[in-house]
Measured scan of single mutants.
Amino acid sequence: SEFQINEQVLASWSDSRFYPAKVTAVNKDGTYTVKFYDGVVQTVKHIHVKA
């Protein structure tokens, strides 16, 4: 599913667990740039983002 900029989502971290994050960019290659609550910004594949 498509997510929008500033949408609150759950994004997987390197430990494969999902954490609350905010979408900061929707990228043309189908990835999302997300910002976790601790301030870390990461680009993740769409399969690693869920509502």
Rank of each mutant, 00 (worst) to 15 (best):
Ser1Phe: 14
Ser1Thr: 12
Ser1Ile: 13
Ser1Leu: 14
Ser1Tyr: 14
Ser1Glu: 11
Ser1Cys: 14
Ser1Gln: 14
Glu2Ala: 11
Glu2Gly: 12
Glu2Val: 11
Glu2Asp: 10
Glu2Lys: 13
Glu2Tyr: 08
Phe3Met: 04
Phe3Leu: 06
Phe3Ala: 04
Phe3Asp: 02
Phe3His: 05
Gln4Glu: 10
Gln4Ala: 10
Gln4Lys: 11
Gln4His: 11
Gln4Met: 09
Gln4Thr: 10
Gln4Tyr: 09
Gln4Trp: 09
Gln4Asp: 08
Gln4Gly: 08
Ile5Cys: 07
Ile5Thr: 05
Ile5Met: 07
Ile5Phe: 05
Ile5Ala: 04
Ile5Asn: 05
Ile5Pro: 07
Ile5Ser: 03
Ile5Leu: 10
Asn6Thr: 01
Asn6Phe: 09
Asn6Pro: 05
Asn6Leu: 08
Asn6Gly: 15
Glu7Gly: 03
Glu7Ser: 06
Glu7Met: 10
Glu7Ile: 09
Glu7Cys: 11
Glu7Pro: 00
Gln8Lys: 11
Gln8Asn: 13
Gln8His: 13
Gln8Met: 14
Gln8Ser: 12
Gln8Leu: 14
Gln8Asp: 14
Val9Glu: 01
Val9Pro: 02
Val9Cys: 07
Val9Ala: 01
Val9Asn: 02
Leu10Trp: 09
Leu10Tyr: 09
Leu10Asp: 05
Leu10Pro: 00
Ala11Pro: 02
Ala11Ile: 14
Ala11Cys: 11
Ala11Arg: 00
Ala11Asp: 04
Ser12Thr: 07
Ser12Gly: 09
Ser12Glu: 15
Ser12Asp: 05
Ser12His: 11
Ser12Lys: 15
Ser12Cys: 15
Ser12Pro: 10
Trp13Lys: 15
Trp13Met: 13
Trp13Thr: 11
Trp13Gln: 12
Trp13His: 13
Trp13Cys: 15
Ser14Trp: 09
Ser14Leu: 14
Ser14Thr: 12
Ser14Asp: 15
Ser14Tyr: 09
Ser14Glu: 13
Ser14His: 13
Asp15Trp: 00
Ser16Thr: 11
Ser16His: 12
Ser16Val: 07
Ser16Ile: 08
Ser16Lys: 10
Ser16Gln: 10
Arg17Val: 14
Arg17Trp: 10
Arg17Glu: 13
Phe18Trp: 15
Phe18Ile: 05
Phe18Glu: 03
Phe18Tyr: 12
Phe18Val: 04
Phe18Ser: 03
Phe18Leu: 09
Phe18Ala: 02
Tyr19Asn: 03
Tyr19Asp: 00
Tyr19Ser: 06
Pro20Gly: 03
Pro20Phe: 10
Pro20Ala: 06
Pro20Trp: 05
Pro20Val: 05
Pro20Gln: 04
Pro20Glu: 05
Pro20Lys: 03
Pro20Asp: 03
Pro20Asn: 04
Ala21Lys: 01
Ala21Ile: 06
Ala21Val: 05
Ala21Ser: 01
Ala21Leu: 03
Ala21Cys: 04
Ala21Phe: 03
Lys22Met: 15
Lys22Tyr: 13
Lys22Thr: 15
Lys22Ser: 08
Lys22His: 10
Lys22Ile: 15
Val23Asp: 00
Val23Thr: 02
Val23Phe: 00
Val23Asn: 01
Val23Gln: 00
Val23Ser: 01
Thr24Pro: 00
Thr24Leu: 15
Thr24Asp: 02
Thr24Phe: 02
Thr24Arg: 02
Ala25Met: 08
Ala25Leu: 06
Ala25Val: 07
Ala25Pro: 01
Ala25Ser: 10
Ala25Cys: 09
Ala25Gly: 09
Val26Ala: 05
Val26Arg: 06
Val26Met: 07
Val26Asn: 06
Val26Asp: 04
Val26Gly: 00
Val26Ile: 13
Val26Gln: 04
Asn27Phe: 08
Asn27Cys: 07
Asn27Lys: 01
Asn27Trp: 08
Asn27Glu: 01
Lys28Asp: 14
Lys28Cys: 08
Lys28His: 12
Lys28Pro: 14
Asp29Ala: 00
Asp29Arg: 00
Asp29Met: 00
Asp29Ser: 00
Asp29Asn: 06
Asp29Glu: 03
Gly30Met: 04
Gly30Ala: 00
Gly30Pro: 02
Gly30Cys: 07
Gly30His: 04
Gly30Arg: 01
Thr31Gln: 02
Thr31Leu: 02
Thr31Glu: 04
Thr31Ser: 10
Thr31Ile: 03
Tyr32Asn: 02
Tyr32His: 03
Tyr32Ser: 03
Tyr32Arg: 01
Tyr32Pro: 02
Tyr32Leu: 11
Thr33Trp: 04
Thr33Ala: 02
Thr33Val: 12
Thr33Gln: 11
Val34Gln: 00
Val34His: 00
Val34Thr: 01
Val34Phe: 00
Val34Met: 01
Val34Ala: 00
Val34Ser: 01
Lys35Leu: 15
Lys35Asn: 06
Lys35Ser: 10
Lys35Ala: 09
Lys35Trp: 08
Lys35Gln: 15
Lys35His: 09
Lys35Thr: 13
Lys35Gly: 02
Phe36Ser: 01
Phe36Asn: 00
Phe36Lys: 00
Phe36Met: 05
Phe36Tyr: 05
Phe36His: 00
Tyr37Gly: 08
Tyr37Pro: 08
Tyr37Thr: 08
Tyr37Ala: 12
Tyr37Phe: 13
Tyr37Met: 12
Tyr37Glu: 14
Tyr37Ser: 11
Asp38Ile: 06
Asp38His: 08
Asp38Lys: 04
Asp38Asn: 15
Asp38Val: 06
Asp38Ser: 10
Asp38Phe: 15
Gly39Lys: 04
Gly39Trp: 08
Gly39Ser: 04
Gly39His: 04
Gly39Asn: 06
Gly39Thr: 05
Gly39Cys: 08
Val40Ile: 11
Val40Asp: 08
Val40Gln: 13
Val40Lys: 12
Val40Thr: 15
Val40Trp: 10
Val40Leu: 11
Val41Asp: 06
Val41Thr: 10
Val41His: 06
Val41Gly: 07
Val41Met: 08
Val41Leu: 09
Val41Trp: 05
Val41Tyr: 09
Gln42His: 11
Gln42Arg: 15
Gln42Ile: 15
Gln42Gly: 11
Gln42Asp: 06
Gln42Val: 15
Gln42Ala: 15
Gln42Met: 14
Gln42Leu: 12
Thr43Asp: 09
Thr43Met: 06
Thr43Lys: 10
Thr43Cys: 07
Thr43Leu: 05
Thr43Ala: 06
Thr43Tyr: 04
Thr43Pro: 02
Thr43Gln: 08
Val44Pro: 03
Val44Cys: 09
Val44Trp: 06
Val44Gly: 03
Val44Glu: 02
Val44Lys: 03
Val44Asn: 02
Lys45Pro: 13
Lys45Gly: 12
Lys45Asp: 14
Lys45Thr: 13
Lys45Trp: 07
His46Glu: 13
His46Gln: 14
His46Cys: 13
His46Ser: 15
Ile47Asn: 12
Ile47Phe: 10
Ile47His: 14
Ile47Pro: 10
Ile47Glu: 14
Ile47Arg: 07
His48Val: 08
His48Asp: 13
His48Gln: 14
His48Leu: 11
His48Cys: 14
Val49Leu: 14
Val49Arg: 11
Val49His: 04
Val49Cys: 07
Val49Tyr: 05
Val49Ser: 10
Val49Glu: 05
Lys50Phe: 07
Lys50Glu: 05
Lys50Val: 10
Lys50His: 09
Lys50Tyr: 08
Lys50Pro: 06
Lys50Ile: 14
Lys50Thr: 10
Ala51Thr: 10
Ala51Val: 11
Ala51Glu: 08
Ala51Met: 09
Ala51Tyr: 06
Ala51Gln: 11
Ala51Leu: 10
